[in-house]
Simulated assay, not measured.
Amino acid sequence: MDTKPIGDRLVSWLRTVVPGLWSSLIAYLVSLGLPAGVTDALDGLGRTVLVPLVFAGVYALLRAVEAKLPAWATRLLLGSAQTPSYGTSTDGTPVVTSLEEPPAGRPAVGSGR
């Protein structure tokens, strides 16, 4: 099966959104199992805190096991088996290429001018 790679922007979006959706589902399922006294005391704050905490854990876990997963599982859990490529500079450090150049006469952010 010949598959065409998708764009880096879509890959990075998928690899952020899909784990976020999994995290929301897990947080929701966890909240169903919490005793009523806990959910009443936390009210909306519990879900507000629970989802980002679950997201951090799920994302870290998925990235840690990604190399061991088959491609279909990576697509299911991370949204894409492809990793985005941002390019590299001459010293090998990653470069973000999607930022626009500053207008003429205006120094770039971080240029020290």
Rank of each mutant, 00 (worst) to 15 (best):
M1W: 08
T3I: 07
T3S: 11
P5G: 01
P5W: 15
P5K: 11
I6S: 11
I6C: 07
I6E: 09
G7N: 10
D8W: 04
R9H: 11
L10N: 08
V11A: 13
S12C: 09
S12Y: 02
S12Q: 11
S12T: 07
L14R: 14
R15D: 05
T16S: 09
T16A: 13
T16V: 14
V18E: 05
V18R: 07
G20C: 06
L21D: 02
W22R: 08
S24A: 08
I26A: 14
I26D: 05
Y28R: 02
Y28P: 00
L29C: 08
V30I: 15
V30K: 00
S31E: 12
L32C: 09
L32H: 12
L32V: 07
L32S: 07
L32R: 09
G33R: 02
P35S: 06
A36R: 13
A36H: 13
A36C: 00
G37P: 01
G37S: 14
T39F: 00
T39M: 01
T39P: 04
D40T: 08
D40Q: 12
A41V: 11
D43N: 15
D43A: 15
G44V: 03
L45N: 05
T48E: 05
V49D: 03
L50A: 04
L53F: 08
V54R: 04
F55R: 06
A56D: 03
A56I: 09
A56P: 02
G57F: 07
G57R: 04
Y59E: 02
A60S: 12
L61W: 12
L62V: 09
L62C: 06
R63Y: 04
R63H: 09
R63K: 05
R63F: 01
A64Q: 06
A64S: 12
A64L: 13
V65N: 10
E66C: 09
A67R: 12
K68A: 12
L69D: 00
L69Y: 04
L69R: 05
L69W: 06
A71V: 13
W72C: 00
W72V: 03
A73V: 10
T74R: 15
R75C: 00
R75D: 05
L76Y: 02
L77H: 08
L78Y: 12
S80W: 14
A81S: 15
A81C: 00
T83M: 08
T83S: 10
P84A: 12
P84E: 08
S85L: 10
G87L: 08
G87W: 07
G87N: 08
T88K: 10
S89E: 10
G92I: 06
T93S: 10
P94A: 05
P94S: 03
V95Y: 04
V95C: 13
T97A: 15
T97Q: 15
S98D: 14
E100W: 01
P103D: 05
A104W: 10
A104F: 14
A104R: 15
A104L: 14
G105N: 11
R106G: 02
P107G: 01
P107Q: 07
P107A: 07
A108D: 12
A108T: 08
G110V: 00
G110L: 04
G110I: 01
S111R: 05
